[in-house]
Amino acid sequence: MYLGLLDVYIYVGTFSKNLSPALRMGYLVLPQALIERCRSLKWFHDLHTPSLNQMLLARFIEEGLMERHIRKMRKVYMKRREVLRRALNHKFGQSVKILGDSTGLHLIAEFKGGEFTKELIERLYQSNVKVYPVEHHTIQKGRHVNKVILGYGNLREEEIEEGVCRLRTIVQKH
């Protein structure tokens, strides 16, 4: 955000990924000059964040439990990402290239010579395999028809392996 001649930085975040979307809480890191203005805007626009939730979250952070939780979950997600990466390489070999596999809760798989048509996506969904075509998120259409986003954040390792097996079976038939 730019105000006047001074650069002002505002950090905005949420606890949705670290804790739970159901918490419905976020945060602002503001320069001192904007705190009261934002507090009054918050008061005017939204009185729905329960005080008890805010106090519990503050204590969770102050006692170092949030940091411990993040470290633990980082290991869990790293393991799931590795399971997905290994399963894709095992089932698809050289015909798959994995992109963006170092962080986050998803990665992109590029399938050489493949095309994720509407029919293929529908067949995958019917088999309870959820993939998200990169093509749906691009400006220049037609350049990413062979790439899908694969999420793993809410899946157990066995579910990841089973999903890749189903993906392989359905892609082969297509």
Rank of each mutant, 00 (worst) to 15 (best):
G93M: 01
S40E: 12
G142M: 01
A109H: 03
G64F: 05
G93K: 00
H69T: 11
G163I: 04
R80M: 10
R37C: 07
G151P: 04
G153D: 00
G13I: 03
G64I: 08
F92Y: 04
I70L: 08
T14G: 08
M25W: 02
D46I: 06
N53L: 13
H136N: 15
E63N: 07
A22T: 12
R59F: 12
L167T: 04
I61R: 04
V83P: 09
K147Y: 05
N89L: 14
Q54G: 09
L52V: 13
N89M: 15
L167P: 02
W43V: 08
G4N: 11
I139M: 12
E82L: 13
N53R: 12
L34I: 07
T169V: 11
L52D: 11
S40Q: 13
P50C: 12
V148S: 00
V29D: 09
D101E: 11
A58N: 12
E162A: 11
L30T: 07
A33R: 05
A22L: 14
N146A: 03
R123P: 04
N18Q: 15
E119Q: 02
F92H: 09
A87T: 07
L57W: 01
N146M: 03
G4S: 13
E162H: 08
S20G: 03
E162P: 06
S16I: 00
F15H: 09
E157K: 09
F15M: 09
L167Y: 04
K79Y: 13
K17S: 15
L155C: 10
L57Q: 10
Y125W: 11
F44S: 14
L23D: 10
T138N: 08
G163A: 01
E63D: 13
R39A: 09
R123L: 02
S16K: 08
S127I: 10
I10A: 04
V171F: 13
R86L: 15
E119A: 10
E36F: 07
F60S: 01
G13Q: 04
Y125P: 03
E157R: 05
L30E: 06
E159Q: 11
F92P: 04
E162D: 10
H137Q: 04
R71Y: 00
G26M: 03
G13A: 06
F15N: 00
V29F: 02
Q54Y: 07
F44R: 15
I108Y: 00
R85Y: 15
R156E: 13
M55T: 14
S51G: 12
A33V: 00
Y125Q: 13
E115F: 06
H144F: 14
R68G: 05
G153Y: 01
G151D: 08
L47A: 13
Y125M: 02
I70M: 04
R143D: 04
N53H: 15
K112M: 13
Q126M: 13
F60T: 00
K42P: 05
S51C: 11
R37H: 11
L124Q: 01
F116G: 02
A109T: 03
L57E: 08
R86W: 10
K141W: 01
I70R: 06
M25V: 12
G4D: 02
V131M: 06
C38N: 10
I160H: 01
R80L: 11
L5T: 14
I35V: 15
K130N: 12
K147N: 05
L99Y: 01
L167K: 03
F92Q: 01
